[in-house]
Design a protein around this nucleic acid. Structure first.
Length: 200
DNA sequence: GCAATGATTTACT
DNA sequence: GTAAATCATTGCC
């Protein structure tokens, strides 16, 4: 097993750097004694300084309150009434930065993930896309604002190296309403991974 | 209190 | 490629 990422990893002030470094790390969940995990192969950075973020401009609502905690917490949000999106809160308290996990490559508990996704055999799309990731790992809104150094949801370093030339930066999708900020290349994925969502 | 909408996925034409 | 599903949060009345 790898070593759990320390809080100091999340509390740095460069959210795009954290998003890049999360590639190749392993996201783990352990609910009811069932371990499931996957290598992070696609992420997206969000910051309060750009419109695509729910907490843009320091806006506070009951939903975004968790953004203003210290880094190292989970943020699970229900989108389109159907899909849960898993984010990691980064940076210091009162600074609303976060990284969205968009795709994983299954590692542990594959059978459990298949059952959760109602699939009979392993397909590349099992962890492709933020809604799919959450479903495969069993994350729901009940797992919002969890401490990522506890033993239910956490991230590990397993010595997987992702060289810079294997990281592709591209504009984010689904954020057209953000205007110019939608063009920021804050979406990162591992080149050549078959587990990422279909490139657009 | 109520209507509009979204950090998406899936299935169908 | 296009459209529908579906509901918590949000913002305005």
């Amino acid at each position: 097993m790898g070593s759990k990422l320390p809080l100091s990893f999340y509390r740095r002030d460069d959210v795009t750097l954290i998003a890049r470094e999360l590639l190749g790390k392993v996201l783990c969940t352990n609910f009811g004694g069932v371990l499931t995990s996957g290598i992070i192969v696609e992420t997206e950075a969000y910051s309060q300084s750009e419109k695509a973020c729910h907490a843009f401009g320091g806006k506070r609502t009951p939903r975004t309150e968790v953004f203003y905690n210290d880094g190292g917490l989970s943020y699970v949000y229900l989108c389109y009434g159907i899909h849960y999106l898993f984010n990691i809160i980064t940076n210091a308290a009162d600074t609303a930065d976060a990284v969205l996990i968009r795709a994983i490559e299954p590692v542990d508990g594959v059978e459990t993930m298949l059952r959760r996704r109602k699939m009979t055999k392993l397909e590349h799309r099992i962890g492709a896309g933020p809604g799919s990731v959450s479903q495969a790992l069993g994350l729901t809104k009940h797992h919002n604002a969890l401490d990522l150094t506890e033993d239910h949801v956490w991230l590990e370093r397993r010595g997987i190296k992702v060289p810079d030339d294997q990281i592709i930066a591209s504009p984010r999708v689904g954020v057209d309403y953000a205007g110019e900020d939608a063009l920021l290349p804050w979406r990162y994925r591992i080149a050549g991974s078959p587990w990422v969502s279909r490139a657009k």
